[in-house]
Design a protein around this nucleic acid. Structure first.
Length: 886
DNA sequence: TCAGTGCATGGTG
DNA sequence: ACACCATGCACTG
């Protein structure tokens, strides 16, 4: 916006020099820019304006962190600091470093900005660059933001709604200049930092995005691009661009993951938020600042991308996008093409937040043309626009059909949007939904195999991080099958037209981490006592229990307990690297990531190159037979270890779980004598315990993981039981003291009654109606909500959800009581047995300590058997039909 | 009649 | 209850 200006004077009131040629200074409240003379502009550009002209003015303050003097009293520099919550100010650089989250509240809220949001948007639109963000007062911007690739002049004639405020900015020139200044900035960066902290230096510590206090730190803030463009002038670069490169730039580079020379900001896209205070007046203060690619601090998440839009760009894709090894790729978002998107209409619906965050702000429905490059370098111009919709907007990219077709995309495929810096180009990538052939997949038929693809992508994206993230164990203990189990499905009607049922949207969150959900059983199977913790041994009623109260258990390598030829307890575990199965002692505690090199028990097989002992068939036998697919996968994994990532093994595990969940439960022929709450592969003591009287028994001293787990769990029960009992005894003693006149028998009855009532469950009437307290069978039925059955897998949280009688703390109380009753019942049984010599066939299986647990793990089948008053104290007979409890 | 356009509707989270 | 978004459909040329 050059000014005609020879008749003008420098806007700087301290100068008032006649303008021969004006240069742009700061943006004024009118939205226009201060026309400065050459000298003032230079000073301004160098960030020395305030110290030059306002040095005696009030308002100078020191950065709380670096001490740098900042003039807080004028429009020229008020973007250079942030107000600290505790008072004081911090220069923007320090603010970035120290994780400043919020813009200066003193700054005019977006709605009050002199430049009306709509106008700002339109202004920005003209020279919008995806690199740019928006913000109330974005001044400094990386030169790349001014990439001419998206300049209006290169696109289409300006939309009529666009406000020509700049008076004809020569964007191209600006772009050129900025490109040049990009290098200059880098060179000057160190210099600027050297001078940092000195008023004299005046090197502005200004973020190029001018973000008003929003610390994007390494992430280009999309909220700031509004005025960079408008800030620029036709003939001159934005004054700020010749300034020393703010340290942020360096941070950006440093923070980025470098993949094959590509500087990548991956997985975690820049924070999403309102582009600027635009559309609805929301400011960007709610942005979740990012540092090192992670949401930071006050990330309330409301402005973050929905997981399904988070880019999961693989290295390959990044390579494709980059081409230029110096490019910094910032994945912005991705979207799975809907049928509509991929249809002939050529309208790609954009996620609103993404559109507002990463695309230029638009105030008119007509929007603006947007240049996007595809992976082949072709440039496409889409019309980025919106439709008013329910007081909101619906953003679309129009004219995408040719591009979509050229990429041979169809519904279900994924398009990704990234930006390449410093060019600032928008790049549209794509990812085919699935390599699997999609049948009949027109625009209306959708291959849902994309789930596979996405997962694969995630896996790929995660390849650098082989450690699985058990980010969250689903309380329900259910596996998120949809994550891993991608099945094609066709869209039939509109109602179901969503590519992936929204209910089945991939639950991949946390910036690309895989949220692998395991069943509780599987989770338990992974939990081991802390290796460094020597458990205290507690003997309770003849049984030794390890006490793990101090150290939390650790996640251990999943293993398959088994018995070797000699009858010794062993466990099979799989190398994370080669996926070969290795035999380790049953007592071995394996780390969550275990490889052959850790096979100290079998040095001959401590390298991946050595073949595994198990044949495929043996492995299949070992694995649940219902899980053929998983076994095949494992075999495939073994055969193709070069092509699989570390996650593959985990995939296998997950698939195992899925198979177990999704496929037929173990058939009756399968080794599961197991109670229904357990699945094939369940390694709990109940499941690995052979049918009654057969096979290997766990010894009392058995230290296998399963036993350890059971012991821990039972230990908890017993401790609580003991505690409660002691409390009761104390209570009893007290009552005795108080009620010495009462017959002891009556007292017992009262206590018993109390116990009974405390255990009231919906199924409790049997015990209470039929029973005599002295009848153990009746008592059993009053034990728990499971009608006399205790599930070893009980999880307080989960059971509280599931238990019909769950109330506050009810489960644990029930467990305690159950334990107590169990022991009481044991004593009673023994006495009965002694008296009647009637061996309760089901009562003792004679397997020592481990039997203890078996006694506790009752088949929930019995829950359904009202008549089964005789609680089975041993495992189910092999023939018991497992049923799902889900 | 058809393609394109823009809004309305309704499912989903 | 609300926002988002996929897409149906009316309207227009």
């Amino acid at each position: 916006m050059s000014s005609p200006s020879s008749t003008k004077v420098c806007f700087n009131s301290n100068c008032k020099e006649l303008l021969v040629q004006s240069r742009k200074g700061w943006r004024r409240r009118t939205g226009e820019f201060a026309d400065l003379c050459e000298r003032c502009a230079s000073v301004y550009e160098e960030g020395r304006f305030c110290e030059t002209f306002h040095v005696n003015a009030s308002g100078w303050r020191s950065c709380e962190s670096c001490g740098k003097q900042i003039h807080c009293g004028c429009i020229v520099s008020f973007h250079m600091f942030v107000l600290l919550d505790a008072g004081g100010i911090e220069c923007i650089t320090c603010a970035r470093k120290s994780f400043i989250l919020t813009p200066n509240p003193a700054w005019p809220p977006p709605s009050l900005l002199p430049l009306q949001p709509e106008r700002i948007k339109d202004l920005s639109v003209k020279n919008w660059n995806p690199l740019a963000g928006s913000g109330p007062l974005p001044w400094r911007q990386a030169p790349s933001l001014f990439n001419g690739s998206t300049t209006q002049s290169e696109l289409q004639p300006r939309m009529p709604f666009e406000v020509e405020i700049s008076g004809g900015i020569d964007k191209l020139r600006i772009s050129e200049h900025l490109s040049a200044s990009w290098e200059n900035k880098k060179k000057e960066e160190s210099h600027g930092r050297l001078l940092n902290g000195s008023l004299k230096s005046g090197v502005p510590e200004i973020p190029e995005n001018g973000n008003t206090g929003i610390n994007c730190d390494g992430q280009y803030n999309p909220c700031v691009h509004v005025s960079q463009q408008s800030f620029s002038s036709k003939d001159e670069p934005s004054p700020n661009f010749s300034l020393a490169l703010p340290s942020e730039s360096k941070n950006e580079m440093n923070d980025q993951t470098k993949v094959s020379g590509i500087h990548v900001q991956r997985i975690t896209p820049p924070p999403v938020g309102k582009q600027f205070c635009g559309h609805n007046g929301l400011d960007s203060s709610a942005e979740a600042p990012m540092r090192n690619g992670r949401p930071r601090g006050d990330s309330r998440g409301r402005n973050q991308l929905l997981p399904r839009y988070r880019p999961r760009i693989t290295d390959q894709e990044l390579q494709q996008i980059s081409g230029d090894s110096n490019s910094v790729i910032t994945p912005l978002f991705e979207k799975m093409l809907s049928a509509s998107d991929a249809g002939r209409i050529g309208r790609l619906v954009l996620p609103k937040k993404c559109a507002e965050a990463y695309f230029p702000p638009i105030s008119q429905p007509e929007g603006l043309p947007l240049k996007v490059q595809d992976l082949k370098g072709r440039e496409w111009v889409f019309q980025f626009r919106f439709w008013p919709n329910n007081n909101s907007r619906m953003y679309v990219l129009e004219g995408v059909t040719p591009c979509i077709q050229s990429m041979q995309l169809q519904a279900g495929d994924i398009v990704t949007f990234s930006r390449v810096e410093p060019e600032g180009k928008l790049v549209m990538g794509c990812r085919k939904a699935s390599t699997a052939p999609s049948s009949d997949q027109g625009n209306d038929a959708v291959n849902i195999g994309n789930g596979v693809s996405t997962l694969g992508d995630v896996s790929a994206a995660k390849s650098a991080d082989p450690a699985i993230t058990l980010s969250e164990l689903d309380k329900s203990g259910y596996i998120a099958k949809e994550v891993l189990e991608a099945k094609p499905c066709s869209r039939v009607k509109r109602k179901n037209s969503t590519l992936i049922s929204k209910g089945k949207r991939l639950r991949i969150e946390n910036g690309g981490m895989i949220e692998l959900k395991l069943t509780m059983e599987q989770a338990q199977g992974l939990i081991r006592p802390s290796p460094n913790h020597v458990p205290a041994i507690v003997v309770i009623e003849e049984y030794e229990f390890e006490e793990y109260e101090q150290d939390a258990p650790v996640i251990g390598m999943p293993t398959i307990p088994a018995t070797d030829n000699t009858g010794e307890n062993i466990q099979w575990t799989q190398c994370e690297d080669c996926f070969k199965w290795r035999k380790v002692p049953a007592s071995a505690l394996l780390p969550s990531r275990w490889t052959c090199s850790g096979n100290s028990w079998d040095p001959d097989r401590s390298v991946c190159a050595v073949a595994q002992e198990l044949t495929s068939e043996q492995l299949q036998d070992l694995l649940p037979t219902s899980n053929k697919a998983a076994s095949k996968k494992m075999k495939a994994a073994k055969q193709d270890t070069d092509s699989v990532g570390p996650l593959e093994g985990l995939d296998t595990l997950a698939n195992l779980a899925i198979q177990e969940e999704g496929e037929a439960l173990p058939s009756s022929s399968q080794a599961t004598t197991k109670h229904p709450r357990h699945r094939a592969g369940c390694s709990c003591i109940v499941c690995i315990q052979p049918p009654s009287g057969k096979g290997h028994k766990h010894k009392q001293s058995c230290n296998c993981n399963v036993c350890a787990t059971v012991k821990r769990r039972f230990h908890t029960l017993l401790l609580k039981r003991g505690k409660k009992q002691s409390e009761k005894e104390a209570e009893t003693a007290r009552q005795k003291l108080q009620q010495e006149q009462l017959p002891e028998q009556l007292l017992d009855d009262d206590i018993q009654h109390c116990n009974e009532t405390s255990n009231t469950t919906p199924n409790h009437e049997i015990g209470s109606s039929e029973g005599s307290e002295n009848d153990p069978t009746v008592r059993k039925n009053s034990i728990s909500p499971f009608k006399g059955q205790i599930d070893l897998n009980i999880q307080p949280e989960r059971e509280e959800e599931l238990s019909p009688s769950s109330d506050s703390g009810g489960v644990m109380r029930l467990l305690q009581d159950a334990t107590e009753r169990y022991h009481r019942q044991q004593r009673l049984s023994n006495s009965i047995s002694n008296v009647n010599s009637v061996g309760n066939q089901t009562q003792q299986d004679g397997i020592g300590g481990a039997n203890f647990s078996n006694n506790i793990a009752f088949d929930s089948n019995h829950q359904k058997t009202e008549a089964n008053h005789h609680m089975t104290l041993t495992m189910n007979a092999p023939g018991s039909t497992p049923t799902t409890d889900r």
